[in-house]
Amino acid sequence: MASSASPTTEPPVFELGTTLEIPPAALEQNQELPFSIANFKKAVTDRLQALDGGDDTQLWIVFSDFDYSKLKYIDRLRYPIRLQLDGSKLIVKMVGPVHELMHISLIQLIQRDMGRMGLEPIRDYVGLGSTRHQHRSNNSFKEADSALAPITSPEWPSLVIEAGWAETLARLHIDAQWWLSAQVPPNSTTALVVLVSFTKSQRTFRLERYELVTVGRSVVTRSAPLGVRNLATCTAVTTIDIRSTPPIITGAPFVLPFAGIMRRPPIAPERNVSMSAVELEAWATTIARIRNL
């Protein structure tokens, strides 16, 4: 059952500056732990065990005073985590089965629609997975959940997907801000960020599309000499409520602009990527069935 009703929760709009500030609320007010290898291994192991036991209320761990020389050692541990570094602060995101299934199956849906218009992986675009990317400020890096880029400029993702639980949406919104502010022209930039989350209590999936929107400003500043500012703005929201049969879907189809993904205008039969209510229903109900949501 599809509906065009607008969502009741309005996603925030972020103004992008030259520095990236992460409000404490976006990290669920997690207490920062002083970094050491022993603290890292214990905290991550405990949190992963809690996640396996069904406790997914806290998906991030924050370490202060991170020793960058230990990064290679952490990588060799091969924990199911994503890493983000901001200055001396290391942010660790836990990765669980539902989380992985949400973003992997979603990017497969996107690639399937790209295939319908004649685009092929390797020939036209590449999947970048969770490759680590450096922010233009040079004191921050981040790993996406899923990402892809056109083969003409594969060094930086054009489309990024970040997944999590709806209880952590504040943190996911900051993820969108990070990607959309990470590079500036003439470097390749991220044009589209898709946030995908699930609310257990309401058994509802939520997709948000974030893009940079340029708006004029009345006061010219040093940081915006042309009198404009860029806002990381949510430009589309789709929800799939699986409590009923069939599910109640709002905001379908979920559309991704072609130019944002491929960094060029479409040439017929190319068009925007579109996921219909039928496709989104199958996506959501399959995840729910496989992971017993």
Results as ranks from 00 to 15, higher is better:
residue 5 A to M: 13
residue 154 P to T: 04
residue 113 D to S: 10
residue 57 T to Q: 13
residue 207 L to C: 01
residue 36 S to C: 00
residue 134 Q to W: 06
residue 241 D to E: 05
residue 176 A to P: 04
residue 114 M to Y: 03
residue 90 L to K: 07
residue 50 A to S: 12
residue 151 I to C: 09
residue 66 F to N: 09
residue 99 H to Y: 05
residue 167 E to K: 14
residue 188 S to V: 09
residue 117 M to K: 10
residue 185 P to M: 07
residue 149 A to W: 00
residue 267 I to L: 09
residue 101 L to F: 14
residue 81 I to T: 09
residue 69 S to V: 12
residue 170 A to P: 12
residue 159 L to G: 00
residue 15 E to D: 04
residue 221 T to K: 02
residue 109 L to M: 10
residue 93 K to C: 06
residue 217 R to Q: 13
residue 250 T to A: 15
residue 289 R to C: 08
residue 190 T to N: 04
residue 270 E to W: 06
residue 245 T to A: 11
residue 245 T to S: 10
residue 1 M to L: 13
residue 35 F to Y: 06
residue 155 E to R: 13
residue 7 P to A: 07
residue 263 R to T: 06
residue 277 A to K: 09
residue 230 N to M: 01
residue 197 S to W: 01
residue 195 L to K: 11
residue 103 H to F: 14
residue 153 S to M: 09
residue 150 P to N: 00
residue 7 P to C: 00
residue 92 V to Y: 00
residue 199 T to S: 11
residue 143 E to Q: 15
residue 12 P to V: 03
residue 232 A to E: 01
residue 206 R to M: 08
residue 109 L to G: 10
residue 98 V to P: 07
residue 266 P to K: 02
residue 254 F to A: 04
residue 291 R to I: 10
residue 117 M to I: 15
residue 115 G to N: 06
residue 69 S to W: 11
residue 90 L to V: 04
residue 276 S to R: 13
residue 245 T to M: 04
residue 65 D to R: 12
residue 68 Y to H: 14
residue 119 L to F: 01
residue 122 I to N: 11
residue 39 N to E: 02
residue 125 Y to V: 01
residue 202 Q to I: 01
residue 31 Q to H: 12
residue 148 L to F: 02
residue 151 I to G: 12
residue 74 I to W: 11
residue 20 L to F: 07
residue 106 L to F: 14
residue 27 L to N: 04
residue 144 A to K: 11
residue 187 N to Y: 02
residue 171 R to Q: 08
residue 132 R to D: 10
residue 221 T to Y: 00
residue 240 I to A: 08
residue 293 L to P: 01
residue 64 S to T: 03
residue 156 W to A: 05
residue 196 V to Y: 07
residue 186 P to H: 06
residue 38 A to N: 14
residue 257 P to W: 03
residue 103 H to A: 13
residue 72 K to I: 05
residue 6 S to F: 05
residue 72 K to W: 06
residue 75 D to Y: 13
residue 141 F to A: 03
residue 183 Q to K: 08
residue 68 Y to M: 10
residue 229 R to P: 03
residue 94 M to T: 10
residue 150 P to Q: 00
residue 24 P to L: 12
residue 205 F to I: 05
residue 44 V to W: 10
residue 41 K to E: 15
residue 26 A to N: 01
residue 112 R to I: 11
residue 134 Q to L: 11
residue 54 G to N: 03
residue 129 G to M: 00
residue 208 E to T: 12
residue 183 Q to Y: 02
residue 95 V to P: 10
residue 1 M to Q: 12
residue 3 S to V: 02
residue 36 S to P: 04
residue 153 S to A: 11
residue 78 R to W: 09
residue 174 I to V: 15
residue 281 E to Q: 15
residue 264 R to W: 09
residue 165 W to F: 15
residue 156 W to Y: 11
residue 194 V to M: 06
residue 59 L to V: 08
residue 283 W to R: 09
residue 87 G to M: 02
residue 241 D to F: 05
residue 86 D to V: 00
residue 190 T to S: 08
residue 138 N to M: 14
residue 216 G to V: 05
residue 259 A to T: 03
residue 185 P to H: 07
residue 212 L to F: 06
residue 37 I to C: 09
residue 90 L to N: 00
residue 17 G to P: 07
residue 162 E to T: 15
residue 54 G to S: 08
residue 231 L to E: 05
residue 210 Y to R: 06
residue 4 S to D: 12
residue 77 L to W: 10
residue 72 K to D: 10
residue 92 V to W: 00
